[in-house]
Deep mutational scan, measured.
Amino acid sequence: RTRTSFTAEQLYRLEMEFQRCQYVVGRERTELARQLNLSETQVKVWFQNRRTKQKK
């Protein structure tokens, strides 16, 4: 599997969503992935990694 390189715009949007809600599921995840031109899996994993980073 190749590592995803997020654009600055994608990271900004993901961070904004994370500040709003640390868990994104269902339709929200589908819509966010579509808007950012990413897969739902990429969005899901980004949120998982971001929550892990916050715990440290």
Rank of each mutant, 00 (worst) to 15 (best):
G26L: 06
E15M: 00
E31M: 04
V24S: 11
L11N: 15
T7L: 02
Q54W: 08
K44W: 09
K56F: 05
E17K: 03
E40Q: 04
Q22K: 10
N37Y: 01
K44Q: 10
R13Q: 15
Q22H: 07
T30E: 13
G26R: 06
E15R: 01
E9A: 07
K56C: 14
Q19T: 11
R51C: 11
V24R: 07
Q48V: 10
W46S: 03
V45M: 09
Q10C: 08
Q19C: 08
F6D: 04
Y23E: 13
F6Q: 05
K56N: 14
T7Y: 02
V24D: 05
V45I: 06
L36I: 13
T7M: 04
L11R: 03
L38A: 07
Q19P: 02
N37G: 12
R50K: 12
F18E: 00
T52K: 14
T52Y: 09
K55D: 15
K53H: 08
V25M: 05
W46F: 05
Q10W: 00
M16I: 06
R20L: 08
Q54E: 14
E31I: 05
Y23K: 13
Q42E: 15
Q22D: 11
R51D: 09
V43P: 02
G26W: 01
E9R: 04
L14H: 03
Q42A: 13
Q22S: 11
Y12E: 15
E40T: 06
W46P: 03
E40Y: 02
E15N: 03
R13A: 14
R51Y: 11
Q22P: 10
L11G: 07
K56G: 15
F6A: 03
E40D: 10
S39T: 08
T30W: 10
R34S: 11
E9W: 10
Y23A: 14
F6K: 04
G26Q: 07
R27H: 07
T2W: 03
Q35V: 07
F6R: 02
E15D: 05
S5I: 09
V25T: 11
Y23R: 10
N37M: 03
S5P: 10
A8K: 05
V43R: 01
F47I: 02
L38V: 13
R13P: 01
K44V: 12
T41A: 13
L36R: 01
R34D: 08
T4P: 11
Q19K: 13
T41Y: 08
R51I: 13
V24P: 09
Q48L: 11
R3K: 15
R34W: 04
E40I: 03
Y23C: 09
F18M: 02
L14I: 03
R20V: 09
L36C: 09
V45Q: 11
E31N: 13
S5M: 14
C21Y: 05
Q22G: 13
E9K: 04
L11S: 13
Y12M: 14
N37Q: 13
T7C: 06
F18K: 01
E15I: 01
T4F: 05
L11F: 09
R1F: 14
T30F: 03
R27A: 14
Y12A: 13
T2M: 10
S39H: 06
R50Y: 07
V25I: 08
A33E: 00
V24N: 07
S5H: 08
M16K: 06
T4S: 11
R51S: 08
Q48A: 09
T41D: 14
E28M: 04
A8E: 12
A8G: 08
S5L: 09
T2R: 09
T2P: 10
W46R: 01
R34C: 05
T41M: 14
L14D: 01
R3P: 15
T52E: 14
S39D: 15
T52M: 15
E9G: 05
Q54D: 14
E28C: 05
R51V: 06
L36G: 00
Q54N: 08
R34L: 07
C21A: 09
L32K: 03
L38Y: 00
E9L: 04
